[in-house]
Write a protein that binds this DNA or RNA. Structure first.
Length: 875
DNA sequence: AAACTCACG
DNA sequence: ACGTACGTGAGTTTG
């Protein structure tokens, strides 16, 4: 008990203090943040200085307290809380929740009384208590066990009031502070006291007479005529003032010290709030990755020189150690393994040379607990080592448990689960230019700590996944997919550099022609790629009317320029220049750099990144190769089969998201439309505009299509008005009509938002979760965004679930059919393959079949496929 | 490093 | 009244 330390904070007082101490800061979203920022600084300071085992933030309850019964004007005349501060209280509460610091308020009582009562409890138990406030009244609570800290100027500077310090400062004992207040009053609380008595006089009187009552018992002995008069005339007021200043130490609180135990912040949540409020410096401080974490336990890692001596078990945690995350090109340093007892580190050459080890890795029945299945599989494959039998994946387990968890390395995840025995990669390898591979024993220990972490975190994560009914999603969908994606990445896509270069030459020629024309029209050369310079030319020199502004100046985005196209002929040239410039830099130059020695591009699919369950593609991104405009689409001609006599084959789901919506919402009309195999946008136009098929104009279909998109995104009238270039009112009308036409959809939208508010998260059909903390935010923007996300995520996420399932089924089917065809890419709703020409007929049959039956919905899934000599030709 | 722009589903 | 469509990655300019 004696080791415990309780810190009690006066929430309102500290918030006020922070608010007035700092200038009125506003972040990008227009929220004032100075009080939250200051409070956070204080809090961090207190946590690191005091290292409390228990902590509480007490809040004032409401407008009236029991003190108002005594004195109606208590705290009267005080200025209303500035709205700029009021709006920050919800964030403070959220912040404290994220720190997992308990908060408490009690009707009719002030924070002081809660703190007073708890400090007395602490005193009785002999526990060390630290009280923190900006209000000197609290100093009356100081005792041998209770220290009261009052903010001095600034925000982190605290003055510590112990009984000794109070004695030194006032010559009084702490409990006399009340008497002092009784006599001198307190302007800020509107406590009257005795006129003419200030701090000096009050102290003098109390030194002589001990208490307020003592003063009145011996009034005659008081020196000074005027003082005596004032005292006499204000006796009742003095007694009342003392009462008002007295902190209640027996408030009927319903919490106990045990409820205040503090285990540290929930780092992820704190980070999320810092991000939300744009606390950049605090965010950076949160990841003190360049600072070495204190390792509590020493571990022993055997560095293996003969692979056949490693003690192998049927289940082991394994980790492939590399100096960065680019496992498709970076060399493997070594592999660490543990069976829960001994830890080994095997340099890659040793692993490669050991038949025993490579056989163990290949053996499906030897279960591997990996930090990252896909990286393990693909990296070892580069050394000719095949890995099978993955049974646990730290990265995927963490991601499925919460897709917003940012997995940077093993240490970051481990920390989330209160496991601190592993260093961050940045500490070991450094960052930026200083990045380097340290000595082998350092790597061995680092990699060893990682497998140890995996071993001990596995039960916790699996338990959580089971509890949330997500184990199947994780174990039967994401885990098998990881290996398949590893295979796809390793296979890569053959890219014809000559085709890229040929397009590049054409582009360069046209770009320099456009450049001359634009300079000519502008009357001067300038950097067309600089929005700043372009804005100056268009809106100042030429004098066009700016339509939209950005944070830093005029917007020159394509949709803005398109509206100006008829105003000046330069606009058209600029738009073309931009379009071709993008193609040249991102796709010609960018992709050319990514072609490996094998003539292929090996993208990496991020499987644990998106908030919805989709994959993403990096280094390079092969999920955004141009298609919409013909000039860009030609880039696809560079993606070709890797073997002579082979072809490219592509298959995509038609309208998968709307089909998912029809199924989830159970909207009868929409289900019927899909069952009848109608063109959904035309059908929507028929229903919304009340015309028959022949009555649907192309404009009506275009509108219906935009509304359908809007519905999937979580509709808003503003968004639709932007995409259709119509007024918000008109857009709103379309939405209303649409929702009347599809009442099931309307119901779904309402239900999903309500459900998200209730539970705090939404799920996909396969139980993928996305937490939406902002859905209850008082900030309109944040809340609206969360609401749209709630509507969109189950749709986009279920579509992602479906194609992932299709990929697993497809991989199995190709294997079962003993086909040579290889799956190469996934682009959200399509799969791209390469195959020998003689297998194309078979693919045309089985790919749609497998994809369409990946998941049974109440509407059919439809897949369209095509093939050709390049990706360009698969249309 | 952040802002802006634009490529994809 | 608020101000945005949902989900990504990458290149260029600029402070």
């Amino acid at each position: 008990m004696s080791k415990e330390k309780v810190v009690l904070l006066d929430g309102n007082s500290l918030a006020y203090r922070a608010f007035f101490a700092l200038p009125l800061l506003t972040n990008d979203s227009g929220i004032h943040t100075n009080a939250v920022y200051g409070f956070t600084m204080m809090l961090q300071n207190i946590l690191s200085e005091e290292k409390p085992t228990h902590i509480l933030v007490a809040w004032d309850a409401g407008k009236t307290t029991f003190r108002h019964a005594t004195f109606g004007e208590y705290k009267g005349g005080r200025q209303k809380t500035p709205p700029e501060l009021s709006e920050q209280f919800p964030y403070l509460r959220k912040l404290l929740d994220a720190y997992e610091i308990p908060q408490y308020e009690l009707d009719q009582y002030e924070a002081d009384d809660i703190i007073g009562t708890l400090s007395k409890v602490g005193e009785e138990k002999g526990v060390e208590v630290v009280v923190i406030s900006g209000d000197k009244d609290l100093t009356q609570l100081a005792s041998d066990t209770t220290t009261v800290c009052i903010t001095r100027k600034g925000i982190t500077d605290l003055e510590k009031y112990t009984p000794a310090h109070i004695e030194e400062k006032y010559g009084l004992t702490p409990e006399k502070i009340i008497d002092m207040k009784g006599l001198m009053g307190d302007a800020s609380d509107n406590i009257p006291g005795v006129p003419g008595v200030g701090e000096k006089t009050a102290i003098k009187l109390l030194k002589q007479f001990e208490t307020v009552e003592g003063v009145y018992e011996s009034l005659d002995a008081v020196s000074g005529k005027k003082l005596k008069e004032n005292l006499t005339a204000n006796e009742d007021q003095a007694i009342m003032s003392k009462k008002l200043a007295t902190i209640e130490v027996q408030a009927p609180i319903t919490i106990a010290l045990d409820d205040l135990s503090y285990k540290g912040p929930h780092e992820e949540k704190v980070k999320a709030i810092f991000e939300e409020l744009k606390f950049k410096t605090l965010l950076e401080k949160m990841t003190p990755q360049s600072e070495s974490i204190e390792m509590h336990e020493t571990i022993e890692v055997d560095i293996i020189s003969d692979g056949d001596t490693v003690k192998l078990a049927d289940e082991m945690a394994v980790h492939v150690e590399m100096k960065d995350e680019k496992y498709l090109s970076t060399n493997v340093l070594g592999v660490s393994m543990t069976d829960g007892h001994t830890i080994s580190y095997i340099p890659i050459e040793v692993l490669q040379a050991s038949k025993t080890l490579t056989a163990w890795f290949q053996d499906e029945s030897k279960k591997k607990y990996a930090t990252d299945t896909k990286a393990t599989y693909a990296s070892l494959l580069r050394y000719g080592i095949e890995t099978n039998g993955f049974e646990f994946d730290l990265l995927l387990a963490t991601y499925i448990a919460n897709p917003s968890s940012s997995y940077t390395d093993v240490a970051s995840v481990a920390k989330e689960f209160n496991y601190h025995e592993v260093e961050s990669d940045e500490v070991i390898y450094g960052k930026g230019a200083k990045k380097a591979v340290p000595e082998e024993h350092v790597i061995a220990e680092h990699a060893g700590r990682k497998v140890k972490a995996v071993w001990s975190l596995k039960p916790k994560l699996e338990e959580q996944l089971r509890q949330n009914e997500q184990f199947d999603l994780y174990h039967e969908l994401e885990m098998p997919l990881a290996k398949i994606l590893g295979k796809m990445e390793s296979t890569g896509v053959k890219t014809d550099l000559r085709i890229l270069q040929q397009i590049g030459v054409e582009l360069s020629t046209r770009l320099s022609e456009l450049e001359s024309i634009i300079y000519e029209m502008a009357g001067q050369p300038f950097n067309i790629n600089s929005p700043k310079q372009l804005g100056e030319i268009l809106f100042e020199k030429i004098g066009l009317t700016p339509i939209k502004k950005t944070k830093t100046g005029y917007s020159t985005a394509a949709d803005v320029l398109e509206k100006l196209e008829s105003e000046h002929e330069i606009i058209g040239f600029i738009l073309t220049y931009r379009q071709l410039g993008k193609l040249n830099s991102t796709y010609i130059e960018g992709l050319s750099k990514e072609i490996h020695e094998d003539g292929k591009i090996h993208t990496r699919f991020q499987q644990a990144l998106t908030q919805t369950g989709r994959l993403s593609s990096i280094n390079p991104n092969l999920q955004n190769i141009p298609i919409r405009l013909e000039e860009g689409r030609k880039i696809r001609a560079a993606f070709v089969p890797s073997e002579p006599g082979w072809m490219m084959f592509a298959a995509d789901y038609s309208q998968i998201e709307l089909r998912v919506l029809a199924h989830i919402s159970q909207d009868e009309k929409m289900i019927a439309a899909f069952r009848e195999g109608e063109d959904i946008h035309t059908k929507t136009a028929m229903d919304v505009f009340g015309v028959d098929k022949d009555g649907v104009s192309s404009d009506m279909r275009r509108t219906a299509k935009a509304v359908n998109f809007g519905i999937v995104y979580g509709i808003s009238d503003y968004g639709l008005s932007q995409s259709l270039n119509i007024t918000r009112k008109e857009a709103g009308k379309f939405i209303d009509t649409y929702l009347e036409t599809f009442p099931g959809v309307k119901q779904y939208m309402e239900d999903i938002v309500a459900d998200a508010k209730l539970k705090g998260y939404v799920v996909t059909m396969m139980n993928r979760r996305r937490y939406l903390p902002d859905i209850t935010s008082s900030n309109f923007n944040l809340r609206s965004f969360a609401e749209r996300t709630a509507m969109n995520t189950p749709i986009q996420g279920t579509a992602a679930d479906i194609i992932k399932k299709a990929m697993i089924d497809m991989d199995a089917r190709l294997e079962a059919e003993k086909m040579e065809a290889r799956m190469l890419l996934q682009v959200h709703d399509e799969l791209i393959f390469e195959a020998p020409e003689h297998e194309i007929e078979k693919l045309k049959e089985i790919v749609p079949e497998v994809m369409e039956s990946a998941l049974q919905l109440d509407v059919p899934l439809l897949v369209e496929s095509a093939f050709g000599l390049s990706w360009y030709e698969t249309k």
